[in-house]
């Protein structure tokens, strides 16, 4: 899933400063699953904001609405009435959601309440970690299901670098060295010989480096 984290309250206050009516909108997708921007988080943030403005003695109206997914047109359009009423739309969706609301409501001023971080997984309650760099040409079959593109701090495809020590990455003792993990797993699976092949330079044009990407499926189009 796409993992995001709420921006600090002070920053959010700056983003909506001066608005009389704010639409705070959550998303029922990834951000609900990892509790960053679902219905509950929307209500929590709404209360915080109301409390703040009450203390400051500034009148403000906070509308709240959470849609199934902010990244699909039919759900986003459900926001139409509230968008019309609000001076600022504060989205608790990921960066995709924020943009998709803006795209669907050309006159709306839409701002993000979250910092969108990565595509990752839940390790344990309250801990999420990055797993995929969305590179456009998956090579996990070469590395035992562990991604060197995003989990090695240098995206080395023929790693490990000289900084790998005691299973940890040179960048941070809290981070596992992806190449130690790859090495150990390939060894356990009896496939170490696959790592002896020289992996050629990657075609980054398949990734974001080639420009913004789009997927089209003829079989899904009417």
């Amino acid at each position: 899933m796409i993992v995001a984290e709420r921006k600090p309250l002070e920053e959010i206050l700056r983003l909506i400063d001066g608005a009389k009516t704010v639409l705070l909108t959550g998303c029922g997708g990834c951000v609900t699953v990892h509790m960053a921007g679902g219905e509950k988080e929307v209500e929590v943030l709404a209360s915080l904001l109301r409390l703040h403005y009450k203390k400051e003695d500034k009148p403000i109206k906070i509308l709240t609405q959470t849609v199934t997914r902010q990244c699909e047109p039919e759900y986003v359009r459900e926001l139409a009435d509230n968008v019309d009423k609000a001076a600022v739309v504060l989205s608790m969706g990921c960066g995709v959601g924020v943009q998709f609301i803006a795209e669907n409501f050309p006159k709306a001023w839409v701002v993000p309440a979250l910092n969108t971080k990565f595509a990752g997984a839940t390790l344990e309650a309250g801990v999420w970690a990055e797993r995929c760099g969305l590179c456009g040409e998956c090579i996990l079959y070469k590395t035992g299901g562990i991604c060197p593109v995003i989990r090695c701090s240098k995206s080395l495809l023929n790693g490990p670098c000289g900084g790998s020590q005691n299973g940890k990455c040179e960048v941070d003792p809290e981070i596992d060295c992806a190449w130690q993990l790859i090495h150990d797993r390939m060894k356990d699976l009896g496939k170490l010989d696959l790592l002896l092949e020289i992996e050629p330079p990657k075609d980054w044009s398949k990734a974001r480096d080639g420009g913004p990407r789009k997927v089209m499926r003829e079989d899904m189009r009417f």
Binding site: K154, L157, C161, E199, P201
Partner: peptide
């Protein structure tokens, strides 16, 4: 951080 290629690929 760029790392378009790694040191092995650079050697090649």
């Amino acid at each position: 951080n760029v790392y378009d290629i790694d040191s092995l690929q650079l050697l090649q």
